[in-house]
């Protein structure tokens, strides 16, 4: 039986002997084990992550904090690296930008996420912007790529579905499903990612110069090998108003990420990286749908590998 286990058992046995006096026993006895001498020993030689993190926390609370933070920025344990970086950000603010930029290429997404969050307030700094751009393009974690992209992305929307509404405790029945046409789409590529600035999503935007395209990947419809951003627009007529609790647009397949506007209003995004190419997603459009009128749906698609585009049907679902 090792010492720590023995102490643990001892503490617990004390607990059972005297139930009411145990509240602080466990923690105070545990923390008392972390003497300065032992902390150094643990940081050097222990392989127990819980023990090392506790010890490092003690270091950050000591007079050695500053040096320790810098020293352990390269520790094997990403939690310790992240805590070290956090300490520097917390204590030095903008002066820690170099540490943060350096951390944008850390092997751990936890560290990179912290670096990205830390850099956000300084995005006007060119070297910071460059690091953010780099993360947007290259970060292996799609969530971090998206977060990096969102720093400069002007469209924000919390799109909540009826099925995710915590106050809804009823069976959700699809009253009517209306599949949008596979044809009649207008299409344009946007290699420089400027379309949103040119208001491609605006219902009044003149898309007459755009090319027609059908649902299916764009490679086989005249844009072979194109990877990047492209825009789709379609007009469709909604039926006369149906009494319902929600209207949702179901995208059965967009390869691989999609940003969606209906009648000029941003609905939301599906962006989980390359894995998203065959993952259906839904967006609530209850307030945006125009019953009995023409509606304009605009989808900005990003494809980074292989085939791309809206390749499965889009369905308007009326839910009760």
């Amino acid at each position: 039986m090792n010492m720590k286990f023995f102490i643990g058992v001892l503490i617990l046995s004390c607990f059972w002997q005297s139930c009411t006096s145990t509240k602080a026993d466990f923690k105070s006895k545990r923390i008392a084990e972390y003497t300065p001498q032992r902390i150094e020993q643990i940081m050097t030689s222990s392989s127990d992550a819980v023990e090392r993190r506790t010890a490092f926390r003690q270091l950050l609370n000591s007079s050695k904090a500053e040096n320790s933070a810098e020293k352990y920025l390269n520790d094997d344990d990403p939690i310790i690296r992240r805590s070290a970086l956090y300490y520097l950000i917390d204590h030095h603010g903008e002066k820690s930008v170099d540490y943060m930029i350096s951390a944008t290429t850390d092997s751990s997404n936890l560290v990179r996420a912290l670096a990205l969050s830390g850099l956000t307030p300084y995005s006007e700094n060119p070297s910071v912007q460059s690091a953010i751009d780099s993360m947007e393009q290259k970060d292996p974690d799609p969530n971090l790529r998206r977060q990096a992209a969102e720093i400069n992305w002007p469209f924000k929307r919390d799109n909540k579905l009826l099925r995710d509404d915590p106050s809804w405790d009823y069976e959700i029945v699809t009253q009517k499903s209306i599949e949008l046409s596979d044809e009649n789409w207008r299409f344009i590529t946007d290699p420089n990612s400027n379309g949103h600035r040119q208001k491609y999503f605006d219902p009044l935007f003149d898309d007459s110069s755009w090319k027609p395209i059908k649902v299916g990947n764009w490679e086989t419809q005249g844009w072979p090998g194109y990877d990047g951003i492209a825009w789709y627009r379609i007009r469709f007529n909604a039926p006369e108003k149906i009494e319902s609790n929600a209207v949702e647009l179901l995208f059965e397949g967009v390869d691989e990420s999609g940003w969606v506007w209906l009648n000029g209003v941003y609905l939301g995004v599906h962006d989980i990286g390359t894995a998203g190419w065959n993952v259906p997603f839904r967006l609530d459009a209850t307030k945006e749908i125009k019953w009995g009128q023409e509606n304009i749906l605009v989808v900005r698609v990003l494809d980074t590998v292989e085939a791309g585009g809206i390749w499965k049907p889009i369905i308007m679902e009326v839910l009760k």
């Binding site: 105070s28 923390i31 819980v50 609370n61 992240r82 996420a113």
Partner: peptide
């Protein structure tokens, strides 16, 4: 934590 408490967290936890 400083008093000896143990925290279990995930990658969403405030950094």
């Amino acid at each position: 934590q400083n008093q000896g408490g143990i925290v279990i967290g995930d990658n969403l936890l405030v950094p």
